[in-house]
Write a protein that binds this DNA or RNA. Structure first.
Lengths: 168, 168
DNA sequence: TATTGTTATACTCTATAACTATA
DNA sequence: TATAGTTATAGAGTATAACAATA
């Protein structure tokens, strides 16, 4: 990790925005920039934990999704929709995971167009171990207070619903 | 944008975590996953706005940083520190921006090791126009309530300070 | 015709290591 | 010795377009 900056660059940017007359936009800009930066910090932590497992975050997400699916299997397009990523990204991730013996492709029983991705026993074990590592190394010690976690879930949930992420 | 999901996949994941006995970890996991997803949505919006200007978010950030610097110039390593990115990423971004005529490299007056990046008049104009576009298309209509913006800035500021991002 | 998935291709950003030049 | 920056190289994710197979 780099040495800490003496000042918060996002707070500085917010002041710069206001000084340039973008008063209404300054605070949302700061909030959004803070989300971008926080994601960067969290992603770095997550990838550090996952690296010993030979997993990237994108591949872990697919593995974790399958581990909660009935039968440990999902159609490719279902995985694409739930993970909110492009179909080619799923193809890419499944290629790598299959090469590592963590998932297998199998034909859909009734729709010949559809390919199912299925967790292997090795994949299920790795998903479990990687999840345990993330829980203890990232999620438990997230440096968010309990009340802040509740607030984040509510605020970001509202945002995602308004953004058309889900309907519920 | 894809069609909305019928249910919130992050809320589902939180329930799955709890059902597997990871009670303490479930809420922080949901908050962190929500940050990752929100960043993805916001980045997509930002890049859509910046594309007509021939800018990516990383290059815009450098341009905006320079536009607020005294004289519109910064040493490469200063830009790297403030943007929290690897020096090679700055080299890469400056190469592209220089090829587009938006910045120029110049020698540091007193330290021969140091290279300054300086905004050209074209770069300053583009930064101004791109910022105006982001302000009106993303920041003003961010779908965050005023109180939520205040909360986000405080919560994420605390997190970034604890994570060693800055000292202030 | 519409949908599913793959392939080919390209373009991001990022990171490590090796190297040059300067302090 | 330490610092600043570049180069070469590699890997990641993402996206578009063209295509094959199936509904």
């Amino acid at each position: 990790m780099a040495t800490p900056l003496p000042r918060d660059p996002i707070a500085d940017a917010q002041r710069n925005w206001e000084a340039h007359g973008w008063v209404e936009e300054a605070a949302p800009m700061a909030a959004i920039t803070a989300i971008m930066r926080t994601q960067q910090i969290l992603l770095a932590r997550i990838e550090t934990v996952l690296r010993p497992f030979g997993l990237t975050f994108a591949r872990y997400e697919l593995l974790a999704l399958l581990s909660f699916a009935r039968g440990g299997a999902l159609p490719m397009n279902k995985a694409s929709a739930l993970l909110q990523v492009h179909p080619t990204s799923v193809t890419n991730a499944v290629d790598r995971l299959a090469a590592a013996g963590l998932v297998v492709r199998s034909p859909h029983p009734s729709d010949g167009r559809t390919t199912l991705v299925e967790l292997t026993p090795e994949g299920r074990t790795l998903a479990k171990n990687a999840t345990a590592a993330l829980n203890s190394a990232v999620f438990v010690q997230s440096e968010f207070g309990d009340d802040d976690v509740t607030q984040l879930i509510r605020i970001l949930g509202d945002f995602r619903r308004n953004a058309g992420d889900f309907e519920g």
